[in-house]
């Protein structure tokens, strides 16, 4: 039996914040699915709404859910009571965060904090929960897990603390792990270890992962599929290899061309390109396509007036752009010219 239905299906999600200056539309129209056993990367700049989206899935956000659905195993999380949500958080859906240094409570031992997560959701005695916690520390590759149980967070390094966070998140065997930039605060070698660990754990435990990041190199390492977000919208969705080979949406193309290294897009004279301008102010979003003021393929009268919809263009690919075909042609011409 294979369950082809998505584990998580986010449809038309909108999250708004009421501020004294007006309504901030942090998440404007977000659609994506996460299949079982799959890693979905959500990529975007700061302010693109990726973290808000992840917190909205957990219902941990103080903003207003202005619309849409978040279907988890077919049931809308937005309809759940706070009590029901508590039974899901940390149990079916776990989350780890960007700040390993501050995400653990400094006054309790790491063992205490993992046991707390376990006994909240599973009907375990303290002794069973203790053993389970030791196992999860072992699972995330922490040496001498039994001794570490009585350590306080400040006695561990950042990488170790993130491992503890992962152990805590996985101690209840969730079906979905949301990782909000889990390696951004770590240095490169530790980052590589944590990514490798997460890949291994996914293989072994078969859970789905939403991996939120702004780092395209991490995306290439981790993801099966990628969702690119810009200004509260999903602008492109594609399998990871497709996205890196043939980015379609002008914003994604810009991101690729601004990235050095082996995943980067080779441009003429090996110069990195930049995307001019800044992320739009969420209080005053541009008319039409939110990306048009920064887009070099922008066509006045088209992109400036109407907002494009997220549309399928090939198998497994979605794009939010009126002009993707023209863009594709132009990019091809540029490449041919460069190679000639």
């Amino acid at each position: 039996m294979s369950d082809t239905r998505a584990l998580l299906d986010v449809k038309g999600l909108q999250v708004h914040f009421d501020t004294p200056d007006g309504v901030v539309k942090a998440v404007n129209d977000v659609d994506f699915e996460v299949k079982r056993g799959e890693t979905l990367a959500v990529v975007g700049e700061s302010g693109s709404g990726k973290s808000v989206t992840s917190l909205a899935i957990m219902r941990l956000i103080s903003g207003r859910n202005a619309g849409g659905k978040i279907l988890f195993e077919g049931k809308n999380l937005l309809d759940k009571s706070m009590d029901e949500m508590r039974g899901i958080r940390g149990n079916d859906i776990s989350m780890i965060f960007q700040e390993p240094m501050t995400s653990l409570n400094p006054v309790y031992t790491v063992g205490w904090q993992i046991i707390e997560a376990i006994t909240t959701h599973l009907d375990y005695t303290h002794k069973q929960a203790y053993e389970r916690a030791v196992e999860s520390l072992d699972l995330v590759g922490i040496p001498e897990p039994r001794a570490r149980m009585s350590n306080y967070p400040h006695q561990l390094s950042g990488g170790m603390r993130q491992r503890v966070m992962i152990a805590m998140a996985l101690s209840t065997e969730p079906k979905l792990l949301i990782a909000d930039e889990p390696t951004t605060a770590l240095d490169v070698t530790i980052q590589a270890q944590i990514l490798q660990l997460m890949r291994r754990l996914q293989r072994e435990m078969g859970m789905s992962i939403i991996f939120i990041t702004h780092d395209l190199a991490v995306v290439a390492e981790m993801a099966h599929r990628v969702v690119v977000m810009y200004s509260g919208n999903v602008v492109e969705e594609a399998p990871v290899s497709e996205l890196f080979k043939r980015p379609r949406m002008p914003y994604t193309i810009g991101l690729m061309r601004s990235m050095p290294g082996r995943y980067g897009y080779k441009t003429a004279k090996n110069r990195l390109e930049i995307i001019p301008g800044n992320v739009p102010n969420p209080l005053q979003l541009p008319s039409g396509c939110a990306f048009h003021p920064r887009c070099k393929f922008m066509k006045p009268g088209v992109c400036t007036t109407e907002a494009p919809k997220l549309e399928p263009i090939e198998d497994d690919r979605l794009i939010r752009c009126f002009r993707w075909e023209d863009v594709q042609e132009q990019v091809q011409q540029e490449t041919t010219r460069r190679l000639a």
Binding site: R89, F97, T102, A117, T120, M165
Partner: peptide, 14 residues
């Protein structure tokens, strides 16, 4: 507003 309180919420605590 500390991160560890957010963690506690994400753990599903009452």
């Amino acid at each position: 507003n500390e991160d560890y309180v957010r963690t506690a919420r994400a753990k599903g605590l009452a």
